[in-house]
Amino acid sequence: MNLTEQWIAFSTILSREIKRFMRIWMQTLLPPVITITLYFIIFGSLIGARIGEMGGFSYMEFVVPGLIMMAVITNSYSNVVSSFYGAKFQRFVEELLVSPTPNYIVLWGVVMGGVCRGLLVGLIVTIVATFFADLRVESPLLTITIVLMTSVLFSLAGFINAVFANSFDDISIVPTFVLTPLIYLGGVFYSTELLPEFWAGVSQLNPMLYIVNAFRHGVLGVSDINIELALIIVAGFTVVAYSYAMHLLNSGKRLRQ
């Protein structure tokens, strides 16, 4: 296919993905907004008021970046995992597999679908957050870079999960047992300074810590970790996830018999 044709294929896949999550907005857009708003109210306003300062900011200011990031991560992931697993389950992924669309276009199409949902929910949550806290972004470029990279990374992860999934259970295992705990323990609600030395050390192994802190650094200008290291780690994971996803598509594992 020439580049124009590839562009048409890409925009077709992307618009199909966007149409999908917009059509079922009650399942895709509304729940995360409600959940995160509840976090704002409970942790930020009610409990946060008693906690006082965290890392030199009001508790509300401290949790907002983490919560936005949580929304971006879970929505990117779950958009791709449910959309692509659904396509596999109903077999209409075959529409793409028989077509001349190159694999990398297929992958970028569905991944950008996840990114769009992640960013859209992230944006709505950010708007809601402005009702609770005074938001100003210290370094917009860093903030946007980290959001985009994270969103791509977790969309890719969702894709890999979908390729391996054999049932609808399989697509909720990772979000429930891996993503959520890692995010919660990744410093969304607390600064690792509060942890005993041992657990602070263990936390360094959690990739979410870097993501949440890099984003917080972008917004507030402070973080628990080295920002270059965080970017390198996220970029590294993204490259690995992309290569693996491409390998799955090229070999046809679990997609072709």
Partner: peptide, 8 residues
């Protein structure tokens, strides 16, 4: 229309 898109 989608299928046509996959063929560019």
């Amino acid at each position: 229309i989608h299928q046509a898109g996959y063929y560019g």
